[in-house]
C-alpha cells in the first residue's frame, strides 16, 4: 500500500513537471522571434509528449501507449527534418522557381 503511494505520487509530480515543460515550449512557440525558434519548440514538444505517453502507460498499466510513443517519435523526427529543409530551401530560393505565377498563367 505504502509503495503504491510512492509510485503514484511520483507519477503525478512527473506529470505536472512534463506538462509545465510543454507549456513553456508552447510559450516559446507563440512568441519565438524566428521560424527556427518555433521549430525547436515544436521538436521539443514532441519529445516531451513521448515521455508523457510513457507516464500514461505507467498510470493506466496499458502497454499500448508505448507503441504510441514509438510512432510519435518517428513522426516528430520526420516533421522536424521536413521543416528544417523547408527553412533552408526557402532562404536559398530553391522551389520558388518551379512555381512562378507567370508560368501558371
Amino acid at each position: 500500500m505504502n509503495e503504491m503511494d510512492i509510485l503514484g505520487t511520483a507519477v503525478d509530480i512527473s506529470f505536472v513537471l512534463v506538462m509545465l515543460g510543454v507549456a513553456f515550449a508552447f510559450v516559446r512557440l507563440i512568441k519565438g522571434p524566428s521560424l527556427p525558434d518555433r521549430i525547436v519548440a515544436l521538436d521539443m514538444m514532441t519529445v516531451l509528449i513521448v515521455s508523457f505517453c510513457g507516464l500514461y502507460a505507467i498510470l493506466s498499466e496499458d502497454t499500448a501507449f508505448v507503441d504510441v510513443a514509438i510512432v510519435l517519435a518517428l513522426v516528430g523526427f520526420l516533421a522536424t527534418v521536413a521543416l528544417a529543409r523547408f527553412v533552408e530551401r526557402r532562404q536559398a530560393g530553391i522551389g520558388d522557381s518551379g512555381s512562378k505565377p507567370e508560368d501558371a498563367s
Binding site: I13, S14, F15, V16, L17, V18, A25, M44, S51, G54
Partner: peptide
C-alpha cells in the same frame, strides 16, 4: 525524467 523535461522547457523559454 520529469525534472529533466521541466528543465528542458525552462531552457527553451
Amino acid at each position: 525524467g520529469g525534472f529533466f523535461c521541466f528543465v528542458a522547457g525552462l531552457g527553451v523559454l
